[in-house]
Every structure is written in structure tokens, then in C-alpha cells.
Design a protein around this nucleic acid. Sequence first.
DNA 1: GCGACTTTGTGCGTGTATTCACAAAGGCTT
DNA 2: AAGCCTTTGTGAATACACGCACAAAGTCGC
Lengths: 230, 230
Amino acid sequence: MARLPVYLRALHALQDRGVATVSSEELASAAGVNSAKLRKDLSHLGSYGTRGVGYEVEYLVYQISRELGLTQDWVVAIIGVGNLGRALAGYGGFASRGFRVAGLLDADEQIVGQEISGLTVRHIDRLEDVIGEHGVSIAVIATPAAAAQGVCDRVVAAGVTSVLNFAPVVLTVPEWVDVRKVDLSIELQILAFHEQRKAGGPDGAPRLDATPAALGGAPPEPVQYVEAAE
Amino acid sequence: MARLPVYLRALHALQDRGVATVSSEELASAAGVNSAKLRKDLSHLGSYGTRGVGYEVEYLVYQISRELGLTQDWVVAIIGVGNLGRALAGYGGFASRGFRVAGLLDADEQIVGQEISGLTVRHIDRLEDVIGEHGVSIAVIATPAAAAQGVCDRVVAAGVTSVLNFAPVVLTVPEWVDVRKVDLSIELQILAFHEQRKAGGPDGAPRLDATPAALGGAPPEPVQYVEAAE
DNA sequence: GCGACTTTGTGCGTGTATTCACAAAGGCTT
DNA sequence: AAGCCTTTGTGAATACACGCACAAAGTCGC
């Protein structure tokens, strides 16, 4: 399930606070989900709780990590070292969960050779070498949209079977390859949609879940929706 | 629906290629979804297709933009100008869809005053001023985890009703505030989970959904996750 | 050792999402 | 103008996710 990482994070937070045992109610609250759902999720991996007491934090951390495959190292390459690629390279949340960034690649000669977060950026021409040398199994694509599919084809040909795509395109891959997409502007668009709903829909329909709170909101200016390539 | 932004992107790509009309089958394929689902989604906003022909791209773009609230400007503030905040500030996908970044804020004196993507970073102490002056309605939180809840409380108190959270914590907000979370490491963990499944579960159990044969492609070699020695 | 209390694990009803399949509707050709 | 062909829009069947509520199971106090 896609919620396990969230539980895992909450459990780590509890561990840091020295909590040894936790009930489904508490953990669900910390993770922001329903307690029955949490119990059902956990029971799907086996019975790791003690009735009347709860779950032992450390044991649960281990079981979830094991289920997610975090008890082994995953070797990652980041392709595209722009602003986003740099942010990803320096993101501490990777290393602490068993993800090791083994390569940074870019097509820009200005960037190739730079040292970022302890790694030297290599030229995209060496993509296959880097993947082979380090046994990369997960590729992170942070290139411009136009380059993404080409890069994707190459990493797949080189043996990568999981791709995390930050470029705003739908990637086409063979069936045995998994792709997950993170799209920053889509998230904002979804927020805008809900924001608009709060203020009354586009057709002026009365808002269904109006809040009593006073909104010091922005007077929305009439606008054109200009489109630009990315 | 959360899929509308994906359709919108696909439509924009078609527009750039000069395509005037598109069938549900083509658009669904470009967006990576089932065509019946796409038609049902679109019919939910009204009947904008022509039977026997398809949908007029430009008209559909307008209707979806309108539904999503992209025909008006949304004013955004980015709090936390680390690597990620910088990447977000420079991300072209925002401006092109009606999102205007009106403020960059950080607590680090070293960063305050820097000019990034045409904006001067201001001190977090001025958060309420910036929100009020520009009529910010969406806040993007790109701070360290420890600071996120505090910042969130402040932006909410200042009148913001939508929050896009990049910090790895579950934010607590009043019921009238929408929060969306983007978690980079969670995406990688989900990939690792599937990757592990392909190779046989954590207990070595045979994979249940193994693909018997790959049509028109090289079958994946039996994968091993060797610890890469350097 | 026993009973009361707490908490898990899950059966079940409900609502929602997804997909199939087809009739209705429009264009296009002759 | 009439019939054929394409594609939409949607009824119906299916699958899935969610959450309530409760019995089973274990702990803790006495």
C-alpha cells in the first residue's frame, strides 16, 4: 500500500521521542488516517500487534521497512542537474532510508564536472556506464520535458526498471518498468480547484461547504490563461 | 477530479502540435488513462464533444481551465528558500498556468536579501506582511520538517486557505484549509516496494503478478541487487 | 487466579471508482 | 436524401476502498 511510508515516518518520529509502544488510534492520528484503515493495512502484512496493548514501535518499523524493501540498499541515479536535480541530490530523506545516489548526470557542459553533494556531475553520454558501474536500479528524471522520454528510453535499455519522473510528460515504458510521476504544477492546480470551490464554482454555484471564517482573500483579477512550453 | 490537470497538459501538447480536434481514444492514450474514464470525466463537466468527430482541443482546454480555476490568477508565496525552494521559484510550470509567485521567505539571514528568479528573499518575520500585501491565497512550504507546522499555523492565521507542503510532516490545519503533501522520499519508497516485488517478495515468495511473457520486447533479465562496490 | 478493561483484527454494509458495452447522435459519402 | 461509419455519452456490472462496529484476545489490577 502507498500509505506504508507515511506510517513509517510517523513511527520514526515516535522512535525519536523514545516511545516503545503505540496504539492504532495514536498512530493513525499521527499519520492522518482512520484507525480502522491503519489496522487493516497493518494486518495485511501479518499480525504484529498485541491486543490490549498496541504495536511495538521498533518491531513495526522493522516489518514495514522489510515490506517496503528498505532493508536493502537501492542505488539511484539523478539525470538532470538543474535546480530540482540539485535539490534532490542534497535531500537527506534519501540516504536515511536506504537510497544511495550513485550518479548525477547532465547534458550541459557548464554543469558537467561540478561537484554537488559530494558527487561529480558526469556527462549524459556516460549514462549507460554510470548505470552499469554502480548497478543503478532506480532512475530519477529531472530533465526538461523535451528530453525526458529520450533519457527514459536509455535508462530502460540500460536495465533500470523503476523511474521517478519529475518532468511534466507522460512517459511511455515497457510493461515491466514502473514509473511514478511527481508533478509540482498539478498539485498546485488541484489546490486551485478546491480554492475556487470554496469561493463558489466557475458557474457561480453556491459553495457547498462554506466556512464561517472571514476570508481576507485576494480579489481575483480577470485573467487569460496563457500557455507556454516548459 | 485530480486527473483534469493531466488531461490539460496533454491537450496543451496537442495544441502545440497544431492539432485542432482529438478523439477520446487518442487523448486517453496521451494521458495514460482508459478512454471510457476520460469520457466520463469530461461528460461530468458538460457535453463538449461531437459524436463521430471528437473534442475540439481549444474549447476543451478552455473548459478544463475554467473548471480548475486557472482562468484567474493565484498568488503564491514560497516559504523556505533552500535548494527545493529555489527550484520551485524557478519552475516555469507555475507562471504558465496562472500561478504567480509573489513572495519568497526564509529565516536564514544569509539568504534574506538574495535575489532569486527576479524576487528578493524576505525575512520570515515579514510573513504576514507579504501575505497581506499581495493577497496570497496559496502557501508553499519548503522548510525543514521542524519548522513546517509553525510556519503553517502562521500562514493560516494570516488568511491562507491552501497549503502545498513539501516538508516531511503531517500538518494539522483547521477544517477549512486544504493541504496537499508532496513527499519525495515516499515516492521512492513506493518504487522500491514494487521493485522488490518484481524480484520476489521480502520473504522470497514467488511474485504473484509476474508477467508470463513480454510482447515485443526484451524480457527483463533476472535482476540482482548487488551491493555496488567502488 | 479471575474479572474487567483495553485494543486488535475483521465481517459487513455502504458508497465510490472503473470498466465494458452499446444505443444515440452526428458527420460523410454517394 | 439516405445509409454507413465513427465517436460520444451513459446504463449496468464489477471491483475496490472506506469505516463502523463488534467479537476475540490479551493485559492489568486486585
